[in-house]
């Protein structure tokens, strides 16, 4: 009898524990996994690896780092949709819901990025453009796992910089590997062209020193001193033409990047684009 009662207590404790554990996890890390894939873009192993990486970053920085894939957007822009998706799934640390989300809508290949709370400080508009350059090339090539991992690594780097008091802003944005490679190519081409010009100019000057016989088509040396007299000197204005060209506008492939307010009233920053 006593044994039956102990068993009942054990079952009750186990039941209560099973009820409490998800709640406690949700209280720390949100109610949904940090990688939500409703389109099955990643394999189970890739999803697990990505989720582990997102969890690790989130817990280390106390900043929910989320990736979500949905079939389609509603009427909203991708970054507004992403911010609401982030909130509705219970993500966000603290009162300001510190965190960031990258959301893909596969129907029209839209992506949206939103950062809330301390993310507004960590992800400046210039910084978001840099973040795009980190993961968009892979995303456009449908290398989703690589793109999401690059995004996760980027967020980790952004948060570290922000925590050090030096968030990425215009002026301290580093080059991406692709940019660095293209700059190196330009540098090589420009260096070779300049070196060729230098060799041509120097040897051209030296060659010119070998030639000293040339006709003198002027007779300046024989102008009588003070013999030049101007008897008439007229500068007559005729007409004026004004030509105007519209100034080039900044051409963004994505919109947003400035602060906005989510549906629930939380401040956020983000932008949308196509991949």
């Amino acid at each position: 009898m006593k044994m039956k009662r102990n068993l009942a207590i054990l079952v009750a404790v186990a039941f209560l524990t099973s009820l409490w554990l998800p709640l406690s996890i949700a209280a720390v890390a949100g109610t949904a996994p940090r990688f939500i894939d409703r389109q099955g873009l990643l394999s189970a192993e890739q999803a697990a690896a990505l989720t582990a990486r997102l969890d690790e970053i989130s817990q280390r920085h106390h900043f929910d780092t989320v990736v979500a894939v949905v079939p389609a957007l509603d009427h909203r822009e991708a970054h507004l949709f992403a911010a609401d998706f982030f909130e509705q799934n219970g993500f966000g640390y603290g009162q300001d819901l510190d965190g960031a989300i990258l959301l893909l809508a596969t129907e029209n290949r839209d992506f949206g990025f939103a950062a809330l709370g301390s993310g507004i400080y960590a992800f400046s508009p210039a910084g978001q453009a840099y973040l795009d350059r980190l993961f968009l090339p892979d995303l456009k090539a449908n290398r989703y796992f690589e793109a999401f991992m690059a995004y996760a690594d980027g967020v980790d780097d952004f948060l570290a910089k922000a925590e050090a008091g030096q968030p990425y802003i215009a002026g301290n944005i580093p080059l991406t590997a692709a940019q660095r490679a293209s700059y190196r190519l330009y540098a090589i081409i420009i260096s070779l062209v300049l070196a060729l010009a230098a060799a041509l100019i120097v040897t051209g000057v030296w060659r010119g020193k070998l030639r000293s016989v040339r006709r003198d088509n002027l007779a300046h040396a024989y102008i009588r001193e003070n013999s030049m007299v101007l008897t008439g000197q007229h500068d007559i204005f005729l007409y004026r033409q004004v030509h105007r060209v519209r100034r080039a506008e900044q051409n963004h492939s994505s919109s947003g990047g400035d602060s906005f307010t989510s549906s629930s009233g939380h401040s956020a920053t983000g932008h949308s684009g196509k991949y």
């Binding site: 024989y222 102008i223 013999s227 030049m228 008897t231 030509h243």
Partner: peptide
């Protein structure tokens, strides 16, 4: 000059006239 929307280039054209005299001595 420029404003927020356009870059402007103004070209003013002039007719220049010079009259005078000059002397050359013993051009070989």
């Amino acid at each position: 000059w420029s404003d927020s929307n356009y870059n402007y280039t103004e070209t003013s054209t002039f007719r220049i006239v010079r009259q005078g005299a000059i002397g050359f001595s013993q051009v070989p």
